[in-house]
């Protein structure tokens, strides 16, 4: 028996107009239309969607494992609010104990620095 040929299509669905398309799963099909019909049958027998994409798998390029691993390891808290959590406590402290006028020296009205 000769082997039949199909392509793998990855399926992406959007559940709400303000949400991004999210990867769902994949289907085997010979045309995009067939992939869309199968995606509906396979993954949306109950829940709804506002839009559906199918993409032939060979059109998707992904990072290799080593690159994914490298990306995962890098810490970037300095790019997030993660490192600034202490500010909340500081603000509470200064609301209750405002800095005094003497504390506010360190600059002059004209901007020149006091030694």
């Amino acid at each position: 028996m000769e082997r039949l040929d199909f392509d793998v299509y990855e399926v992406f669905a959007q559940s709400d107009p303000l949400k991004p398309h999210v990867h769902v799963f994949n289907v085997l099909a010979s045309t995009p239309d067939m992939a869309l019909a199968l995606a509906e049958e396979n993954f949306f027998r109950r829940e709804g969607f506002v839009n559906l994409w199918v993409v032939r798998r060979d059109a998707i390029h992904q990072l290799g494992y080593q690159d994914r691993e490298g990306f995962r390891k890098s810490e970037k808290t300095y790019r997030t609010t993660e490192d600034y959590k202490y500010l909340r406590d500081k603000w509470r402290h200064y609301r209750e104990h405002p800095m005094s006028a003497e504390d506010r020296t360190g600059g002059t009205r004209d901007g020149s620095v006091v030694d």
Binding site: M1, R3, V8, L28, E41, N42, R45
Partner: peptide, 27 residues
Amino acid sequence: VQDEVGHGQLLIRVAEDLMRPWDKNRE
């Protein structure tokens, strides 16, 4: 019954991707 066949479809896809290096598929 339709769900069960659908589950079969999902799982056959997972198996097929694993069998690709052996040049085998759902057939």
